[in-house]
Structure formats: structure tokens, C-alpha cells
């Protein structure tokens, strides 16, 4: 295990994910984390592929696309700095539900999902902090998705009759 990158420690501890955590917990997570960079246009992971990393986006925009039969790739969400990506790496079996593409140069912290999971399992204090932040993030995501579902800007076009229209 290499010496912790001080920049990584700084980045992680000021991120919304780990902000406010006790140092001892951050320092447990740092060793299983690494900085990653994705050039614009590159694919971070593919739908249905297995990905073992949980990403904490530091900067840049990531598009999440889902394949829909007959419609191709549909972008369902974009994520940006401060947001979590690929939570299935921690909660699921690592199979990704969407394809993530870097729409801009993306800088992120990748946390090894299986080791984080182990850590959470053995260290309930770490588990509590990680899962709380994950739950918050998911809760926001769920609210946002609900708002999207509400289709707030749609409106039914009134029945317009076009014959005999007269100028006023």
C-alpha cells in the first residue's frame, strides 16, 4: 500500500461525500481510493458491465445513458462535481444499470467497492457514515427523478379549431 496522497486526502475530506467525517474514518477510506481522470468523450463504464468502483465526481460532467429498445441510448441524468456515481458497486453486484460517459474532462475519486463494503461490514462506525451519505445521495436522486416523472413543464395543448379563424 502506497503512502496516502495528501491531495487525495484533501479532496476526499472536503467532498460532500466525506465532509464532516472524523479524520480516522477518512484515513481508513483513503487507502482504498484513487484519483482517476477521464477525457471528454470517454466511457467510464458500460450498462450491464461489472464495475467495482464507487466514483465520487470532483469535477466535470458525466452523462448516464440507458439503452432503450427502439430508442437507442437515452440520457436520463447528468452528474457533476460532488455527486456519487456507480453506487451499484457498493450496494449491488457491480453490474451497472447505465452507461456513464465523461461529457467533459472528468476528475473523480474511485473507491474500491468491494473493499469499502468489507470495511463497512467490519467497522460499523465507518459503515454508518458511508451508508448515511449514500442514502442521502440516493434520496436526492430519487426526489429529482420523481420531479422528472412529474413532467412539470408539460401542458396539454388546448383543443384548437382552425377553421374560420378571424383576425381581431
Amino acid at each position: 500500500m502506497s503512502v496516502p496522497d495528501p491531495l487525495l486526502v484533501e479532496e476526499l475530506s472536503t467532498s460532500p461525500f466525506a465532509a464532516g467525517w472524523p479524520h480516522r474514518i477518512v484515513s481508513e477510506v483513503v487507502p482504498i481510493s484513487r484519483q482517476v481522470l477521464y477525457p471528454a468523450g470517454s466511457i467510464i463504464f458500460e450498462q450491464n458491465a461489472v464495475n467495482r468502483d464507487l466514483f465520487l465526481i470532483c469535477s466535470g460532467l458525466v452523462g448516464l445513458d440507458m439503452r432503450v429498445p427502439a430508442r437507442g441510448n437515452v440520457r436520463i441524468l447528468t452528474l457533476a462535481g460532488g455527486e456519487l456515481l456507480a453506487w451499484s458497486a457498493l450496494l449491488g453486484d457491480g453490474q451497472m444499470t447505465a452507461t456513464a460517459t465523461a461529457l467533459e474532462p472528468v476528475r473523480a475519486i474511485a473507491i474500491d467497492g468491494s473493499r469499502l463494503s468489507d470495511l463497512c461490514q467490519h467497522r460499523p462506525d465507518i459503515g454508518f457514515h458511508v451508508m448515511t451519505r449514500l442514502a442521502e445521495s440516493l434520496s436526492h436522486r430519487l426526489t429529482a427523478t420523481r420531479l422528472q416523472l412529474l413532467d412539470l413543464y408539460s401542458h396539454t395543448t388546448p383543443h384548437v379549431l382552425t377553421f374560420g379563424a378571424r383576425e381581431h
Partner: peptide, 17 residues
């Protein structure tokens, strides 16, 4: 009511609901 009927026809002729 024939007033209503005329009003409705007028609105249709004018192209409004």
C-alpha cells in the same frame, strides 16, 4: 338555451373553445 347555443357557435366560429 338558445343564447348559450349562439354563444357556443360564435366561439366555434371564432375558433375558440
Amino acid at each position: 338555451n338558445h343564447h348559450q347555443l349562439v354563444e357556443v357557435l360564435s366561439s366555434l366560429i371564432a375558433g375558440r373553445r
